[in-house]
Nucleic acid binder design. Structure first.
Length: 416
RNA sequence: GGAGGGAUGGGUGAGUGGUUAAAACCACCAGACUGUAAAUCUGGCGUCCGGAAGGGCUACGUAGGUUCGAAUCCUACUCCCUCCA
């Protein structure tokens, strides 16, 4: 089966930062035999976000051509921690934790990836019985210099930052995974390039056909600056309710301030975050992306409208179209028109309000974390009772059932 | 084994005896503005009491000590890093 240019572009360019080796990869795909697509994950961080979805979409596309995904639960490498992460070593997870995390992970994973064309494997299958002799055999194939070629190791070495020996093991273990499952193509973010290449090398050394690598770009987070990541608090989780997902997309900065290094990693491609998101996470035709860019450049398109469309498409993808429409109208009502959302929680006003002030009720209703904050919010003019802005922390007796108490735009309760 | 450096609020990081609930920046929250939860501008940002003015309490790795007064000085401990071997 010959890949036509259209397909080739869709498969190997959209949402792909780099392929290694492109010519081999194309040849392999055209051969038509079912391939094993390797995707590993770290069960210590089981939450998936849009950044992961970029790669998952790619897996899905290839599944639709008849290939098989092999997802590896990295229960051994999780104990080491990926060197690109901050903390070198992590606490061991118990077998139960691994299992439950894996479940959480896979539930999200299969929102995008086809479960029927997926095989799930645990690293402990092959690393459980791995002995010191095996470790020595494995490590003896590589040198320190080879590993210092890796950018983040090199940087840390030069700046006298610590590199744990176990961290050197990480790429080796990941590489061995490729041997264990006989991977044909491995997927990872561009920051995984080194690890994937070690897999290639090791396979060659051990007489397997070296895997191809598909490196997906790093998605910029909702701050528009750094890569999307849970610890950075700038992520949109695949699990999030439609309204949050929609709102978070709307909070993307119109113009990205993505750091240069993110661009180096094959991340931010345009200065408009929205366009990168459309590019990596939707099927919007590539010509349209260019129109969007021109439209924003010339000012003829309001970025908000593009973000709304993006938000709809993303919510539809991870929930459904009805949820997307619902989330949009929720956004329009509560944020744009500041109306009362239908799903606002209710709060039962206590019978005895003697001596209580509005600030006490705000805290009791969970609209502020403490009385200091509640008072502060009142001072700042953030508190509205039945659409009337409160200017002072009056007695709670003014609070009547049937109305609404609102703090800022998003915190609101119906009074009962 | 030896020598040295460090540990500050969610993060980075100033601060070497009182004017420090602790600079600055980031994040976060709120207000204004806006067809965006964008951008920009303004304010806030330990906690408790108080309508307010104001007042408590807790906090600079841990435990003690010196002092009228300590994030700042001393002692011990824990952890981290660097260099030499």
């Amino acid at each position: 089966m010959k890949l036509n240019p259209e397909m080739r572009r869709r498969l190997l360019e959209r949402g792909v930062a780099e392929t290694i080796v492109e010519s081999e990869l194309v040849e392999l795909l055209e051969r038509g035999e079912p391939l094993r697509l390797k995707m590993g994950f770290d069960p210590s961080a089981p939450d998936l976000h849009l950044g992961h979805a970029v790669g998952l979409r790619k897996l899905r596309q290839l599944q639709e051509l008849g290939h098989k995904v092999v997802v590896i639960v990295g229960d051994w490498t999780a104990q080491i921690g990926d060197p690109s992460g901050k903390s070198a070593t992590r606490p061991m997870l118990t077998a139960e934790q691994v299992l439950s995390n894996a479940e959480t992970y896979l539930a999200q994973f299969f929102k995008v990836v086809d479960r029927d064309r997926t095989e799930t494997r645990f690293q402990s299958d092959w690393f459980g019985p791995f002995g010191l002799a095996d470790v020595i055999k494995l490590t003896s194939r590589f040198t320190v210099a080879q590993f210092l070629a890796r950018d983040d190791f090199a940087k840390r070495f030069q700046s006298n930052q610590p590199i744990a020996i176990t961290e050197l093991l990480y790429p080796l273990m990941q590489a061995y995974d490729s041997i264990a499952i006989e991977s044909d193509i491995e997927f990872g973010g561009t920051d995984q390039k080194f690890n994937l290449l070690v897999g290639r090398d090791l396979q060659r050394m051990m007489g397997q056909r070296p895997q191809q690598c598909i490196l997906v770009p790093i998605l910029v987070g909702t701050d528009g600056v750094r890569r999307m990541g849970k610890s950075l608090g700038n992520y949109i989780g695949l699990d999030e309710p439609p309204n949050d997902m929609y709102g978070k997309v709307m909070s993307l900065p119109d113009v990205s301030a993505a750091m240069d290094e993110l661009a180096d990693e094959g991340g931010a491609k345009s200065r408009y975050t929205v366009i990168d998101y459309f590019d990596y996470l939707t099927d919007a035709p590539s010509e349209e992306l260019e129109e969007m860019r021109l439209g924003m450049e010339s000012g003829s398109v309001n970025p908000m409208d593009l973000k709304k469309r993006l938000a709809r498409e993303i919510v539809a993808q991870f929930h459904d179209h009805a949820a997307a429409r619902e989330a949009e109208s929720h956004f329009e009502r509560t944020v744009q028109r500041r109306e009362m959302p239908d799903d606002a929680p209710t709060y039962k006003i206590p019978a005895d309000l003697d001596g209580k002030r509005v600030s006490d009720i705000i805290v009791a209703a969970g609209l502020a974390s403490g009385s200091t904050e509640a008072r502060r919010l009142i001072d700042q003019g953030a508190v509205r009772l039945d659409d009337q802005r409160l200017t002072e922390n009056g007695p709670a007796a003014s609070i009547k059932a049937g109305g609404a108490l609102r703090v800022g735009r998003r915190r609101i309760v119906r009074l009962q």
